[in-house]
Design a binder for these strands. Structure first.
Lengths: 126, 126
DNA sequence: AAAACTGTCAACCAAATGGTTTAATAATTC
DNA sequence: GAATTATTAAACCATTTGGTTGACAGTTTT
């Protein structure tokens, strides 16, 4: 796989939305593993595991090198960082726990509405 | 919706794996919105937007209160924090960028293999 | 060269996803 | 009470998902 295109946030979050794949990443955090080693902990066919690894590769979370008959996978942490960056945008929200989030939202709402009257609500996902 | 069950990481990451839903969260970060307001930025039927909001609710990322005929949504940041916690497990990997990750993985691999001879590789996802 | 090992591919399947459209429900306004 | 507004529900559709099985292709062992 020659990673035809940069992985998107869609790809990354989708890859993470499956417990099998998350578990595979955890194992890869402990060191390189080939497909067989990644497959064995799960009651699942070899082919199924291979597909999961493919999803991780598409998300840019895993890189593979072929060595003899073994396909060796390595964790590629970059996209996890990207995902984390996206999440941390909200850090302010979850860290201001009980100290009424409601008031914050209302205040920011007013600010947003006032602002949007002048410049039309810029959105800034991705 | 009376959130029958605690949202899982699966739910959360799945909810985040769609650009429409991520954009909705961004809007909600600026303040409460009803379904209609959440729907309008997208060229998409009302019903479709409603379904997206449902997915966000299931993931625990949004809470709704009904006020008259309007369903008002509020950002619920807790699960984002949970997702972030999961990701930060890997923080060490992405922060040690160029300074050969390879060596780190090999070292940790050796450690893991040695350890597993004695205690059989504890896994700790979720 | 035959057997075993590691992995992919193709075909298939059931279930879920993301969207549509056309009702139906519930609150508000005329 | 009839029309309008805000939203869900239900039926449908195409595509994707996560899984299976069986055949195939390299690589290593015997």
């Amino acid at each position: 796989m020659v990673l035809e295109q940069a992985p998107t946030l869609d790809d990354v979050f989708h890859a993470l939305a499956d417990p099998t794949r998350r578990a595979m990443l955890r194992r890869l955090a402990a060191g390189e593993r080939n497909i067989g080693e990644l497959a064995t902990p799960f009651s699942m066919s070899f082919a199924a595991a291979s597909k999961h690894v493919r999803v991780l590769e598409v998300a840019g979370l895993v890189r593979r090198r072929v060595e003899g008959r073994s396909h060796i996978c390595r964790l590629e942490p970059g996209p996890l960082r990207t995902a984390d960056d996206w999440l941390r945008f909200y850090e302010g929200f979850w860290s201001s726990k009980l100290d009424d989030l409601g008031a914050i939202l209302k205040a920011e709402d007013q600010a947003a509405k006032t602002a949007s009257k002048m410049k039309g609500e810029p959105d800034h996902d991705e």
